[in-house]
Computed example of a mutant assay.
Amino acid sequence: MNHQAILRFRRLGILTIIAVYLVILAGGIVRASGAGMGCPDWPTCFGQWIPPTDEAQLPADYHEIYARRGYENTQFNPVKTWTEYGNRLVGATTGLLVLLTAWASRIFLRMDKTIFYLSLGNVFLIGFQGWLGSAVVASNLKPFMITFHMLMALAIVALVVYTIARSQRDALGRLDVGGLPDKFKTVLIAVMAMTLLQVMMGTQVREAVDFIAHEHSYIDRKYWRDDFPVIFYVHRSFSSIILLTNLWLVWKLHRSAARQNLLYRTGLAIVSVIGIAILAGITLDRLGFPAVAQPVHLLMANVIFGLQFFLYIGLGYAGRTPLMFGENGEIKPDSPTLTG
């Protein structure tokens, strides 16, 4: 078995997960800065593959050109243009990493074809996500399209996390979780559902904030809170329930798993990230909605779900007999069947 090739696949997969999270962060920065229409066309930006740095580099009638395309009041702003362009570059890099991960996954065709097909499926998902990004621009940033675009990013993360975890099922199978209560996994599923609900409420809050920000011309941030909808206060209060339920999970892991146990450390990471997300939320609520806090809050919410999903997958593999492979990568006859 080519251990170097498997290690290369796992490293590429981890880089892909990081890149997807960077795309989410970049998207949050774009929304917080109001740079979503910094590039009014796609895949080019103001008709160029490398956007201009000065309005003088554009045609004199560019306002009329984009008005005829359905984008009225298009005004070139170099900061917003390059912010959106940076977001696209991160997205393109992520697409390249997904392709490389799929190529590297061919090593599993002899061992676990599902890993190869999942990696290949992610290529199509990332392609759809790229098309969806163009549709978001074409829709002139309709809130529903933005939210769907973000949820697709979550789906891509979940698929990559599952694929990488499956490739490490031998190591995960050695983890001892026998001391966990029977209801632990049920509670974890409920916690994941609550996290998704919290993310969906957060998208509604962000849609309302986008509208408020537009009404205030993206200035006077300290007054935005006066117009927040009721869903904001529900979203804020619900974070306490999520924190407490995740603390329960970590407490059970603390009592039953060794400190070096990967799943225990994942639980600690979940609670830490929740703490950062709550601090970012308090900053938004109490300090006049600073632009830097909004993308951090969004990123942490997505990282929380990714970690919870890995914990769920890890629990499914923990305690199983590791697979045994021959020199050419074939599964030995006395290995357990590939399930899950």
Rank of each mutant, 00 (worst) to 15 (best):
A35T: 10
T44I: 07
C45Q: 08
C45G: 02
F46Y: 15
Q48E: 13
I50Y: 06
A56K: 02
Q57R: 04
P59H: 02
A60I: 09
E72C: 05
K80R: 10
G91L: 08
T93Q: 07
A104T: 01
A104K: 10
F108P: 02
L109G: 12
M111C: 02
G121V: 00
G130R: 04
G133K: 00
A135T: 03
S139V: 12
S139L: 10
N140D: 15
M150Y: 12
M152A: 08
A158V: 11
R169M: 11
R174Q: 06
L175W: 01
V177C: 06
G178K: 03
G178H: 02
D182E: 09
V187P: 05
V187G: 04
M192A: 05
L196W: 08
Q198F: 14
M200Q: 10
E207Y: 03
I219D: 13
D220Q: 09
D220I: 15
Y223T: 11
Y223H: 11
W224Y: 13
P229K: 03
F232I: 02
S240A: 15
I241H: 02
W248M: 15
W251C: 09
A258T: 15
R265C: 10
G267F: 01
V271A: 06
V273P: 07
A280P: 06
G281L: 02
I282A: 05
D285A: 13
G288V: 09
G288W: 08
A291L: 07
N302D: 03
A318D: 06
E327L: 09
N328E: 08
G329V: 08
P333D: 08
